[in-house]
């Protein structure tokens, strides 16, 4: 099973430029047209499952609006304990 990831977009910084939407290798990002940020842009959102936490959206984000999480690797921890 692929590694599970999760991103959070800070609406204060997101300007809806869509660079992350185009760069996402899993195509799981899109602008949320039902919402507006305080600056009046449609913010980017994770729209479906399949994020792997690869960090590419955060690398291309010009406003450092994205925080990336990735599932902790249990296998490695077991190996270290053993």
């Amino acid at each position: 099973m692929p590694i599970k990831g999760w991103i959070e977009v800070n609406d204060l910084y997101c300007k809806g430029c869509e660079l992350c939407v185009a760069a996402c290798p899993q195509n799981v990002l899109a602008l949320d047209l039902d919402q507006l940020t305080p600056k009046g842009y449609h913010p980017a959102r994770l729209i479906t499952a399949g994020c792997t936490g690869c960090n590419i959206c955060a690398i291309v984000c010009p406003d450092a609006a994205i925080t990336v999480y990735r599932e902790a690797r249990q296998k490695n921890k077991v190996a270290i304990n053993a």
């Binding site: 990831g5 999760w6 800070n10 204060l12 910084y13 300007k15 809806g16 430029c17 869509e18 660079l19 600056k39 842009y41 936490g53 960090n55 955060a58 291309v60 984000c61 010009p62 406003d63 450092a64 609006a65 994205i66 925080t67 990336v68 999480y69 990735r70 599932e71 902790a72 690797r73």
Partner: peptide
């Protein structure tokens, strides 16, 4: 249970930049 992979660097202030959307100055 998730590891933090990336967050906004500490050396950037909390200010919202005046750059146009998609401007690579931000990068």
């Amino acid at each position: 249970t998730m590891d933090l992979i990336y967050q906004r660097p500490e050396s950037l202030s909390d200010a919202i930049t005046h750059y146009c959307p998609g401007c690579t100055h931000g990068i």
